[in-house]
């Protein structure tokens, strides 16, 4: 019979606030069920810390079903941990072995400052969305269901991009802390649909300008972002973003 519980050594980044310098602190995680998610394992460690009167480890989480984009964590140097196409909340302890030492760090990027421990401020992404990641529609009666035909291939491609949950793993994994995959997914998603055409040029110019303004690095086309993306958003969207921005730049008045 395989083991049902395990003991682990965690090396967790602890940082009091944005101003203070952080450091790694070691914790023992004992009797962890293999069926727990990584976040539940941290919950168990935090219960113990709280019982001992210590400050629990702060980490971001919300839906815990892999669709909200709140959970983050760089686990043993990889954003969202060892599995592909998996957010940290959907990573289970059976992916680790009894006795493993696990290093847990926050996303590291200048535009994502640490708020506390493993929690980073990702509002840079919100500001990028606010300058163009939307389609302006006039309110009024709901349009007929099939009034606007959309080819199936376009709809599928738009859905692939729309899967982006804005978690920031792409930035975390990129050696340049570039936000290209995130912006590419948002620009691609709306640019593939007929509703997104009117604002297409303005959208890409504004979103890229905001991305640069936030201080993200530049894309060097190495592909780490797609490799860690929990939604497996491909490099094709980055190519599409480059193409859209080029066309919009040439048409810019």
């Amino acid at each position: 019979m395989s083991e049902t519980t395990m003991n682990l050594t965690l090396r967790v980044w602890r940082q009091k606030n944005a101003q203070s310098a952080g450091t790694f602190v070691e914790y023992e995680a004992k009797n962890i069920s293999v069926d727990m998610s990584f976040l539940e394992m941290l919950d168990v460690v935090n219960e113990e810390l709280t019982a001992r009167g210590e400050d629990p480890i702060a980490f971001d989480h919300d839906c815990r079903e892999g669709i909200c984009g709140m959970c983050s964590l760089t686990i043993n140097g990889k954003a969202h941990g060892p599995l592909e196409a998996t957010t940290t909340c959907q990573l289970h302890m059976r992916s680790f072995k009894n006795g493993d030492a696990i290093t847990v760090e926050p996303w590291r990027a200048k535009p994502f400052p640490v708020i506390k421990d493993l929690v980073t401020d990702r509002s840079a992404f919100d500001r990028i969305i606010q300058v163009g990641g939307f389609v302006s529609v006039s309110t009024g009666g709901a349009p007929d269901g099939n009034a606007l035909p959309i080819p199936k291939t376009d709809a599928d491609a738009a859905m692939d991009a729309a899967q982006c949950i804005g978690c920031g793993a792409c930035v975390a994994a990129c050696k340049n802390a570039s936000a290209m995959l995130f912006v590419a997914a948002k620009v691609g998603h709306l640019g593939l649909l007929p509703q997104g055409q009117t604002e297409r040029d303005r959208r890409v110019l504004h979103m890229v300008a905001q991305m640069d303004e936030e201080g993200f690095g530049n894309c060097t086309n190495i592909g780490s972002c797609s490799a860690v993306c929990p939604k497996e958003i491909g490099q094709d969207f980055i190519s599409r973003l480059n193409r859209d921005f080029l066309k919009a730049s040439l048409r810019a008045k």
Binding site: G77, R108, A109, S178, F216, G217
Partner: peptide
């Protein structure tokens, strides 16, 4: 690119 990640990963 260097400036975008002032603190490197472990």
């Amino acid at each position: 690119n260097r400036r975008a990640r002032p603190l490197a990963y472990d």
